[in-house]
Design a protein around this nucleic acid. Structure first.
Lengths: 227, 227
DNA sequence: TCAAAAGTGTTCAGCTTACACCCATGA
DNA sequence: TCATGGGTGTAAGCTGAACACTTTTGA
């Protein structure tokens, strides 16, 4: 622990907010209206306040940006390169957040010019600062995490079909060859969803709707969902 | 990213330095000679300097504490609770480090009263600040990490027997019922070690020495070593 | 009755687990 | 020759991957 006094740092919190729309994985970006990187896109971020925890700052950032409370949040990594902000020394604690699209205002999902707006992770504009690096890291961690825990549900509406769940996995992993039968068997045996009595209309046979079980084991320690 | 000016923070780096001695997993602790928590044990830590990166600060901390360069280091998590330091606001970036005992001075490994000194993670004294929480997190991550990557080698000498490797896994996981034959088969098939022509004398038949292959795949993405 | 999508069962290969056995050395 | 620890082979059982199949709806 520190004993000597040194100059202070700015501590920022930057959040990578994911959502799933139209079988695409999107993140929330804001357009910068100050130097440096004026006009560029960047991750939503704010400065840590003296009286709040890191988690609270990330939560506050999401509330300010999307007007949503209690999003699923996880701290990712802290970026502290002395050169990462050309103006001054900023240490940035990165978070990722998962938000279901039905908690967002429908208008904000459509255009990709306003600020904030949603952009496919598979077609991103250039990002300010080291935010491309942060985003890459977040995506890697998200992909890793859905293989051993049930966080994909945070990106889905309350009720969903198994097909929608499988699509979520395929879009996030960018792997569209998961076997339907095997996927369903895994989900069934993991015992993390329960059927509701409703059905979703589709092009063919209606699909049974499921919801996530509140008493489910979220993390399957050392047992992945997909090999 | 931040646009408004706020008060500065102290940014600290605290490191959880692991080593393996006598079939025990130990960490390095320093005794505090200032308030608060005078006389208590704490993790080695230092304040971040304005011109260095977080990784460099952690490396510097290890050099200052153990006179070792280029230890295996990984950033863990950042702790930023406003109350974590009773004096002032300190955001602490935690690292874990893995050091082989043959890089340490033999004397320093023996007594557990000097500062720094080595303490079994299975019999720890009370720790200052939130360091017990940091340590717990580090231990969880270490255990998790050795299941899908080959970091255990960082804790072993250059040359080691397969028994020593298995002991390392068992001590770290606190699980002493790994099957010898199956362990060896996994290691053989993972293709991460190569034999050297020397042998280690033991109580019975001499044990072949191995070393880690420099061209080995360190991380086995989504494929764990042990289920 | 056909297309589309939901939903299931079955096989085979490969891996995990448990356990028994042999080998090399020093006392 | 015995105790000690190193080192290996194999059979049983489970898991994952592939694929073929049935069901239910709307047009």
């Amino acid at each position: 622990m520190p004993e000597t006094m040194e100059n202070g740092f700015q501590v920022a919190v930057d959040t990578v907010i994911f959502t799933l729309v139209d079988r695409d994985l999107k993140i929330c970006l804001t357009r910068r209206d100050h130097e440096p990187f004026v006009g560029n896109w960047s991750l939503p971020g704010c400065l840590l306040r003296l009286d709040e925890s890191l988690d609270s700052a990330a939560q506050r950032q999401i509330e300010d940006t999307l007007h949503i409370s209690k999003a699923y949040l996880q701290q990712l990594y802290t970026f502290g390169d002395p050169e990462r902000d050309p103006r001054r020394r900023v240490v940035s604690v990165a978070y990722f957040a998962l938000v279901s699209k039905d908690r967002l205002t429908p208008t904000s999902l459509k255009d990709t010019s306003g600020s904030p707006s949603w952009h496919s992770v598979y077609a991103l504009p250039p990002l300010a600062f080291d935010h491309a690096e942060i985003l890459n890291y977040a995506l890697t961690r998200l992909r890793y995490k859905i293989e051993y825990s049930a966080v994909a549900f945070e990106l889905l509406p309350e009720e969903f079909t198994l097909r929608e769940l499988q699509d979520a996995y395929m879009v996030i992993l960018n792997d569209h060859k998961l076997d339907k039968a095997n996927f369903r068997k895994k989900i069934r045996e993991a015992n993390i969803v329960e059927p509701v009595s409703r059905y979703r209309e589709t092009g063919g046979r209606p699909a049974k709707l499921f919801r996530f079980r509140d008493d489910a084991q979220l993390e399957t320690k050392a047992r992945r969902f997909f090999p």
